[in-house]
Design a protein around this nucleic acid. Structure first.
Lengths: 215, 215
DNA sequence: CCTACCGATCGGTAGG
DNA sequence: CCTACCGATCGGTAGG
């Protein structure tokens, strides 16, 4: 009898709060990841300041105070979103580089991977990072900047090689800033339901930046 | 006696509120412009949501409710900032185009003027427009978009001419979006105290985008 | 343009 | 992770 009660207790306790996802999805320990994912979507759609921790809690199926069990502040949650985004972006970028590529091919892969990071389905993390860094503390921002520098480091040898071959004009550091700007700005206007694909964007960027006969 | 009182009354009334600028600067009717300018600076530094109407009032030397005498809502003030920015930017751009320019020269002037609009001293209006449009109502955004389309219209014949001459590769519409991205993103990283000048940036952008021997 | 104020909302916490 | 709550702040308004 006691054994039966113990087995059934979790089920009996469940419907205390508001509607929950199925038990399969609860999967204790993943609530933190759920919060990060939900927060990223809301931060992107409405902005950090305009998103309340209550919004995030409700969209995750929690009550208003519960996000603070997982994160010590709203800002810490924002920082976690950005860290998770940079972790995934760096992984994606590393997986795409191939040792035998010539510089133009390498740049093409980097650009295509970056567009994927910015515009691929369900990718809210990096857009949030690009537009909400102002809400980080100085210490948090320093941490994110470090991840960004590591990410950008992979581009520099490629850009230098292109410049040496005469395929990229302009000061390499300014070129890097301008190129990242051109790519990053796409989160403002890209519409996946319109005609251009990520491959189209990559072709256009290569044609615009890389000089010479064809690429 | 009555005449004397009438003449002095405005002076006698002045010190009722908090510290004011000199009488010369008050200049009734310019308070609205002052609000727009102060709001632009604060919106840019802290973001729209993180700036309170009390911040704006205090920085203009008003009390907390007074901005609402000039603007019916905080959002209307934001919209006024953007309209004022676009008005100045379009004026600046129009004044710079010369009928005898070849396409590359024309693009150079457009880019230089755009950097001036984005990064020149005291230019907070357009950066606010670029990063706070999400806070506009749909109707306000439609109005701002119209001004932006008019501004961008001047670029299209230039880009088409460059494409026809083989100096600009890539689809012209995508090129326009990528180029504006490269330029607009500079508000994120440009530091007027560092080495590069607006002319340096213009040179780098031209070298990056415009193909051919030299420009 | 100021004074005095309102209702709403927010981030965060104690205690369980 | 929920309950119940706090202090602070905010956009906006009436009435002058």
């Amino acid at each position: 009898m006691a054994a039966v009660l113990a087995l059934e207790a979790p089920l009996a306790k469940r419907p205390r709060g508001r509607p929950r996802k199925t038990l399969d999805e609860r999967d204790e320990g993943n609530r933190r990841q759920q919060l990060i994912k939900v927060a990223a979507r809301l931060f992107r759609r409405k902005g950090f300041d305009a998103t309340s921790t209550r919004d995030i809690a409700a969209a995750t199926g929690m009550h208003s105070g519960s996000p603070f069990y997982h994160f010590k502040s709203k800002g810490a949650l924002l920082c976690a979103v950005m860290e998770e985004g940079m972790r995934a972006a760096t992984l994606r970028q590393t997986s795409v580089l191939q040792p035998l590529d010539d510089p133009a091919q390498a740049l093409r892969r980097l650009i295509r991977s970056h567009f994927d990071t910015l515009l691929g389905p369900g990718r809210d993390f990096i857009p949030v990072m690009l537009y909400e860094s102002r809400s980080l503390t100085a210490r948090q921002r320093a941490g994110i900047n470090k991840l960004q520098r590591e990410y950008e480091a992979a581009w520099m040898p490629v850009l230098h090689a292109l410049a040496a071959a005469g395929l990229l004009r302009a000061d390499v550091n300014l070129a890097r800033l301008l190129i990242f700007g051109a790519l990053n700005w796409s989160v403002q206007w890209f519409d996946s339901k319109k005609s251009a694909s990520l491959d189209d964007l990559t072709d256009a960027a290569m044609a615009l930046f890389v000089h010479g006969e064809s690429t």
